[in-house]
Structures are given as structure tokens and as C-alpha cells.
């Protein structure tokens, strides 16, 4: 890593367009629309192209866990594949630790992958003809590292992901959760600085998923990598992310911390997502408070504006009349109907 303020990953005006002659079409479309991304995308669509990533601009800082979220088909995989240069990108700029990778040679890319990139795939992408150890050691094998040395390193990462004892199994003999552990171990074998994960837990059962999420957080707590993590599951995003980018139809519509996303969704698309989460843990009383009203009942359970909905509801369990809400200084600033509280959480269950 160079200077402290160089972001691990920086994307500027990044486009990925699918179709014949995409590059020229993009240049034309941008020229005709006067560099307006939305108009250019429409022009491209009219020409039968697929603008899978449109004008993506964001940075991922050192040690940050950056989550990209969106419905399926919104371009998440395409975006992460541009950054990891599995797709070359059609326009714009991608810098990894300040180095422009879109212009990099094949050789340089191979070197980069050997030194500092690791990737985990939704369907694991394990090599069926190799054992767990061989899979995990493969990134070292291509560099010509001796068998003894790479096996040694492989064992380390295998125990990091808790797969001791399965070293000599083949992928087909493992469960889904175990397979993804192998995928994770393999991506960590070269001890990369930057870690790409494309929906790593989406193919797993909910219970296993939660377990792996927790272990993933533990690993990240010790390793402190710069991470791009993709998911379509808002709960997963909120649980893991330092920051979240929300994608729709190839566009990044909002970037923010989990709280920002839940409390200040920029549009209905983002709001729809947050409807599906346990808002109680992320939203606070002020979001359902009737500001300025002072007509409340005899009970005062002591609500404050900054309390989460869950906490507030716990205090109003047996109440049916409006209760007062105070700000941090103790002043009553509004009221809350307990039924509103319940209603706000009710949607979440659906």
C-alpha cells in the first residue's frame, strides 16, 4: 500500500456494456447525450446493447467492508468482475491501490492476482479433480511454489476456515457450507489485500448462512482486508457492511452506511429493500413520531427520539394510548401511538 489516503479501490465513470462494438457505441452515446449517463444508457438500450454497469463512481477504503446490493440482474456480478478484471470494462477507470488496472497488461494482471487479489464465487467454483488441499494450494502452485511449502500454507488457511480433517476430500464429498469454506480458504491462500466475494452465502441454507456470516466477520476482524462483498439480501448487507452501495438496472442509486440506507432511502426502490429488514434494530423512534402533537395518555414509558423501534416497543407492550417522546434534553417533542410502532415493525415480518 502506498500513501494512507490512497483508496484500495477507486472506480470512476466505470461502464460495462455488452453487445457488438460496445466501446464505440458507448463513446457515441456519451457524446450524443452530452455525458449524461442516464440518457446514454437509454440510447445504448435502444441500440440493442446491454449497459450492465452504468457510470459507477465509488471508492473502497483500506480495511473497509464495502457491500454492493441489488436485485438479481442489476449488474452486481458484472461490476465486481470489472474490478477484478475478469471483464475488461467498456469505459472509465478502475484503480487498485492507485494503479490503473484497466490499462494493465495481461502479465501485470496475472501478477496482481498472484499478489493481492482473492475472489470467492457464488457457486464456489471449486476444481472438481483436486482435493481440498490441492484446491486451496492452487493459487500458490501456479506461482511455482514448492509442494511442501504450499501444502503448509494451505493447511494454515484450511484451519482458519475450520475445515481440519477434510484436507484430502474432494469437493463432491463436501456439503455446500464446507465447499464455500474451501472457496474462502483458496481465495485467502496468497494472503491478498483485496478480497472479492460475489454472493458467497446465497447458495446456502439460512442456518449455515448465518454461521458463515459470523465466521466471516471474525476472519475479517483479524485480517482487516479491503473487501467488496456482493449480496441481494438486505439483512446480510446491514449485518456485514461498513458501507453499502445499492444498484438498480446497472446504476448505483445510493451509497451509505447501513443506518443511512435504512433511515434515508433516496427513492422507493431502496425503501422497498429496507421494508424487508428488521427495521426495529435500525430505525429509531423519530421515524414514527408525530411531531408537535401534545395530546397523550396517562402513561409515560419514557421514550426518546434516538431509541430503536425494538426498544420502544418493548416499553409500550401493554399500552394503547399515545405516549410522549422526549429529546435528549428531556423536552417533549412529539407523541407516538403504540399501534404505529407495531405497524412499523409489522411490515418487516412480511
Amino acid at each position: 500500500m502506498t500513501e494512507a489516503n490512497t483508496p484500495a479501490i477507486a472506480c470512476r465513470k466505470l461502464w460495462q456494456v455488452f453487445g457488438d462494438g460496445a466501446e464505440k457505441a458507448l463513446t457515441d452515446a456519451l457524446a450524443r447525450s452530452g455525458n449524461d449517463a442516464d440518457k446514454a444508457a437509454d440510447l445504448l438500450r435502444d441500440a440493442g446493447m446491454i449497459p450492465a454497469v452504468q457510470d459507477a463512481n465509488f471508492e473502497v477504503h483500506d480495511g473497509e467492508l464495502f457491500v454492493i446490493m441489488g436485485l438479481s440482474g442489476s449488474g452486481k456480478s458484472t461490476l465486481i468482475r470489472c474490478i477484478s478484471q475478469l471483464l475488461s470494462g467498456t469505459g472509465g477507470e478502475i484503480r487498485i491501490d492507485g494503479e490503473d488496472v484497466r490499462g494493465a497488461s495481461k502479465k501485470r494482471l496475472t501478477a496482481l492476482r498472484r499478489q493481492k487479489l482473492g475472489m470467492v464465487f457464488q457457486h464456489f467454483g471449486l476444481f472438481p479433480h483436486m482435493t481440498v488441499t490441492e484446491n486451496v494450494a492452487y493459487p500458490l502452485r501456479v506461482q511455482g511454489i514448492s509442494r511442501a511449502e504450499r501444502t503448509e500454507r494451505a493447511r494454515e488457511v484450511i484451519s482458519l476456515v475450520g475445515l481440519e480433517g477434510r484436507e484430502d476430500s474432494f469437493p463432491r464429498q463436501l456439503s455446500g457450507g464446507q465447499r464455500q469454506r474451501v472457496g474462502i480458504a483458496r481465495s485467502l491462500a496468497v494472503n491478498p489485500d483485496i478480497w472479492f466475494l460475489d454472493e458467497p452465502f446465497s447458495a446456502l441454507d439460512p442456518l449455515i448462512r448465518r454461521q458463515l456470516q459470523d465466521e466471516f466477520l471474525n476472519i475479517q476482524a483479524t485480517l482487516k482486508k479491503s473487501i467488496v462483498f456482493i449480496t441481494h439480501d438486505i439483512a446480510e448487507a446491514l449485518k456485514l457492511a461498513d458501507r453499502i452501495a445499492i444498484m438498480r438496472d446497472g446504476k448505483i442509486v445510493q451509497i451509505g452506511t447501513p443506518t443511512e440506507i435504512v433511515l434515508h432511502p433516496v427513492d422507493d426502490y431502496v425503501r422497498e429493500f429496507s421494508k424487508d429488514v428488521a427495521k426495529g434494530q435500525h430505525a429509531i423512534v423519530s421515524s414514527v413520531m408525530r411531531e408537535g402533537e401534545t395530546q397523550f395518555g396517562p402513561d409515560d414509558p419514557g421514550l426518546q427520539t434516538g431509541m430503536t423501534l425494538d426498544a420502544a416497543l418493548a416499553k409500550c407492550m401493554n399500552l394503547y394510548e399515545p405516549v410522549p417522546v422526549r429529546d435528549s434534553s428531556g423536552e417533549v417533542v412529539g407523541i407516538v401511538h403504540p399501534s404505529d410502532l407495531a405497524a412499523a415493525l409489522q411490515v418487516d415480518e412480511a
Partner: peptide, 26 residues
């Protein structure tokens, strides 16, 4: 599987390594 091919690329294999160590055996 495309992801197996991509995993070979991301492991830092050359095209030759990808083909003969991963794709053909798969």
C-alpha cells in the same frame, strides 16, 4: 462452469495453466 474458469484466472494462472491444470481436467 464459468466460475471454475474464473477461479483459475483469479488464482493467477497463465492461460496455459488454466487450460491444462483446470479446464481440461474438469
Amino acid at each position: 462452469e464459468p466460475e471454475i474458469k474464473e477461479a483459475a484466472i483469479m488464482s493467477g494462472g497463465t492461460r496455459f495453466q488454466q487450460l491444462f491444470q483446470v479446464e481440461i481436467p474438469s
